[in-house]
Amino acid sequence: MPATPRKRARACARAGPRILAALLTLLPGVSALAYEVDSFEARAAAYVDDAACLECHEEYAASTTVHRDLEEFETAAVVTRGCQSCHGPGSLHVESNDPDDIRNPATADPVVANRACLQCHRADDVGAFEMSLHAAADVSCVSCHDIHGPQRGALLRSSQPDLCVSCHQDQRASMYLPSHHPVREGRMTCTDCHDPHGSTPSAASAGRPNDLCLSCHARHAGPFVFEHSPVIEDCTICHAPHGSVANSLLVQNEPFLCLQCHQAHFHATIPGIDGEFTSLDGYSAVSTHDASKRGFLTKCTQCHTEIHGSDLPSQSISGQGAALTR
């Protein structure tokens, strides 16, 4: 019977990786591709009743972990063997009591450790973890999650941000910059913005640009009549989300940040009188020789207040209403 197009496609899909792997193994030194990542896998062992495990590991008998208590419909992989769902068949270990006779994700190579988790967590958002930056850095699931712990939170070994900054030391320092998101204050968490399991683009990430930021800062979503194009392009052109010295998470303080793309008003070149004056509208102030520079080159957004965009026109006709001052 001839293969259907669908079957042929499946066969190709299955053969493709094998061909690529075969080609890779032709490269010098790549024979290590096939290193034995899980020495336990090759051994012949049978599944036993969980009670046999708990006879010795009695500390887990009272554990409220969800991982000991799964129904078939809760997992795509139909893993319902209790302890042995992750640790593999335990008969050899039960007989010998030898730790080498059972898989231990806590001490195993991360590739092996993660595979135990991903056999179930492959149909949800965690499914792409093997391709993530964390996986590539040999961070395994159990590096952050306490699998035997009670089902509280996400089984994290410690709370955020402490867990994250224990490795990401540079971000720990960023949280202590004068302007920062309220992460160290506990008002938000690292995972409000970051997906520690992520890698390939998700459906959500394909929405409009800057949607991650706009999911909280929705007042800047517009779309506005008068736009400021870098706001549309990328929030991080002007803002450093982990923290900054300048106010409002700006990568540099005004006016320098603005002067990278714009020039200074000519008013800043006009010297001032030294002394007090009163305007025709009755407002008094003190002027100095460099007063116009101080006025026009201290903080651009004192006048260009609506820097993220506005529907209201600015005052000057020659500026076409687009100066974002209103």
């Binding site: 202590y176 004068p178 010295v245 300048a246 303080n253 005004e254 006016p255 320098f256 000519f266 800043a268 070149t269 006009i270 010297p271 020789h289 460099d290 520079k293 101080r294 080159l297 201290t298 903080k299």
Partner: peptide
């Protein structure tokens, strides 16, 4: 350029300089 104008901008960095020390 305009004759009356003052194009000496050497002082403007001081207007927006930031320097903090924090202890927690």
């Amino acid at each position: 350029t305009v004759a009356i104008a003052d194009y000496d901008f050497s002082a403007i960095p001081e207007y927006s300089r930031l320097k903090y020390r924090q202890i927690e």
